[in-house]
């Protein structure tokens, strides 16, 4: 029990170190610029961590990463904190309730999130002006595609660093009881099989 707790602390320490690295990489452009697009490692970490953690962890981690992003952007204070909190919650719940945690799910969930994020980013940055659409295709969409590729690499790295079997999701009672029971039955059946 104690070693489990210690592993958990180590895991959080790992998350912390990865977050600091991602922050440095994102805001002091160290990552290579491909066709004018840069990756946003903090958002990628939110997606990956949320997929591996429960909804509370996903939310809080998303909020923290959003707050870091808010530090260096011109959006209203707290904008990215709320946005990333929602992204963390949605990714976590999707893996908890609908899909399994594997590469295909990652590409589906991550791709959708990155696409929505790029649209929101474009609306917040460029607004509804005539050139916004052009900028969306020449910059924001490229960033989304680049991020998706980086997400895949980061996911594999994450699995290599933290092990392929980490999953600490625990039902917290926020889901409908019927759904929860189904989920638990599924888990039991899988274990028996």
């Amino acid at each position: 029990m104690e070693s489990k707790k210690r592993n958990r602390y180590l895991l959080f320490l790992g998350y912390g170190i990865m977050t600091i690295l991602a922050y440095v990489v994102q805001f002091t452009p160290l990552m290579p610029c491909v066709f004018g697009a840069y990756p946003t490692p903090l958002l990628l970490l939110v997606i990956i961590v949320a997929m591996h953690e429960n909804d509370w962890c996903g939310m809080i981690y998303g909020m923290l990463c959003g707050m870091l992003t808010d530090l260096n952007s011109l959006t209203p204070p707290g904008f990215y904190a709320v946005l990333y909190l929602c992204i963390g919650l949605i990714c976590s719940l999707l893996v908890e309730l609908l899909v399994q945690n594997n590469v295909i799910s990652l590409l589906c969930v991550g791709g959708s999130v990155l696409l929505i994020h790029s649209v929101i980013n474009c609306l917040v940055g460029a607004g509804f002006s005539a050139g916004s659409w052009l900028l969306y295709f020449t910059f924001y969409l490229r960033c989304a595609v680049y991020n998706l590729l980086a997400l895949l690499v980061l996911y594999i790295l994450f699995k290599l660093i933290f092990g392929f079997d980490i999953r600490y999701k625990k039902p917290r009672g926020v889901y409908p009881k019927k759904l929860l029971r189904q989920k638990m039955m599924q888990t039991v059946n899988r274990k028996e099989a």
Binding site: Q26, F27, P29, T40, T69, L71, S73, G125, L135
Partner: peptide, 13 residues
Amino acid sequence: IARDTAQPFGTFT
């Protein structure tokens, strides 16, 4: 000390 690369407007800190 930092640059916002998520937007193409050269925003910096």
